[in-house]
Design a protein around this nucleic acid. Structure first.
Lengths: 212, 212
DNA sequence: CGCAATATTGACCGACCGGTCAGTCAGTGC
DNA sequence: GCACTGACTGACCGGTCGGTCAATATTGCG
């Protein structure tokens, strides 16, 4: 029972079958993970026969890798423009935090897909992601922070890589824990990522101690 | 091909079959997730027949839920003693951050199991975890922070729930991203969670801006 | 001891899995 | 007309899945 019909395809020009398969696979893999999705389900979702899926992709794993590759390139290009803005380091940090979280939330499917893949494929995949997907952006962020530190916009004792980890980690944790946090009565920010981001940067900048 | 033999069982007194099944299931579920683990694999790992597993647990799902229940109660009791220490808020924060991260890392299997379950069972499970597993501890941490805030040990503008989220999130992110972070040349703390924790608290306390 | 309850087993089931295959069909160049 | 090609399909394969069942081994109790 296909939950989504393959676009009625009124006469002829619909999305290419390959694209429909990739889109269906992306949705289903992100939703339920590699093992829980059958090639039959993908085929039905895409409105083609299972055999046709195998005609275009030599195996389930090959299809999965193709989906992952696409997702990663999208994910990478989204973050590209970050950190290139001008202004003080403080302004740039605010911008980065806001747009980074927005990017994660924008295509939830991609985020889930990558999260799932990292969880299921262990250290080896972790290395691949570090080197091929996130490495550049992380290094750039660290470099920006280091430069700011030299210009005395950042405290000397701070490890730039630690700060970068914290900035990214806070957003990632927000993304994947929203559905838990939402049910804590003390928590008020799950529906407004902007306010989460603002509070995060505020804490990072000024610290949590009372100021004389 | 069982990767781990069921304990030679020299004559008779080994762990009860039910316990062996639970232990095997916990290991395998944590390692590969619900769908990727077969009842046959669990049975072999536990050194019993598959039918015997079904004799003690009415279904795969019931076994899984039992494993999850056990894992959650262990996870809960571990965190129990936190925050009950004495001393200034700063000292207690340092203690909390250190031991919280240590707890997460101690039984990696449980952490992975819960992480996997939250990812695969969506918002509904998120609510259950929030209410039945993490709710109390989170509320207690928030309460400690709020009290400290009233005694002026914490800046007024800080949202205690936000700070609690940040404390916990930083540790969780560290746990699940170690294998990625490890491969960033700028990162130096992946093998020393204590130094990560120390840097985290330092940043939170003093902020990242230069101090006059 | 006998005997019932429980623990454990191998054989088995239908459903579904990823993947294959022979073949249909529309389009294209000659 | 004909040969060829790539997209596409339904039927099918061996294998594994979660789950069942009748039969056997083990235990505990009168």
């Amino acid at each position: 029972m296909p939950l989504v019909e393959p676009i009625p395809n009124l006469s002829e020009t619909g999305p290419d079958a390959v694209e429909r398969i990739l889109a269906a696979a992306k949705d289903l893999f992100a939703e339920s993970g590699f093992n829980a999705v059958s090639m039959n389900a993908i085929a039905e979702h895409a409105g083609v026969s299972k055999a046709n899926v195998f005609h275009h992709f030599k195996s389930k794993n090959a299809l999965y890798l193709e989906v992952l590759k696409t997702a990663c390139s999208e994910s990478g290009s989204q973050i590209d423009q970050l950190g290139s803005g001008s202004g003080t380091l403080v302004e740039r940090l605010r911008d980065f935090s806001q747009s980074h979280l927005a990017n994660i939330l924008r295509d939830e499917k991609i985020s889930r897909l990558i999260q799932r893949d990292l969880l299921e494929n262990g250290p080896q995949r972790g290395k691949e992601f570090a080197e091929q997907v996130f490495g550049q952006n992380f290094a750039r962020l660290v470099e920006i922070l280091r430069t700011g530190q030299k210009k005395d916009e950042l405290r000397k004792g701070i490890d730039p890589a630690m700060l970068a980890t914290l900035l990214i980690g806070a957003d990632v944790f927000f993304f994947q824990s929203r559905e838990v946090l939402r049910h804590f009565p003390d928590v008020s920010f799950t529906d407004t990522p902007e306010s989460y981001s603002a509070m995060l940067v505020d804490i990072l900048l000024r610290g949590i101690l009372p100021q004389p």
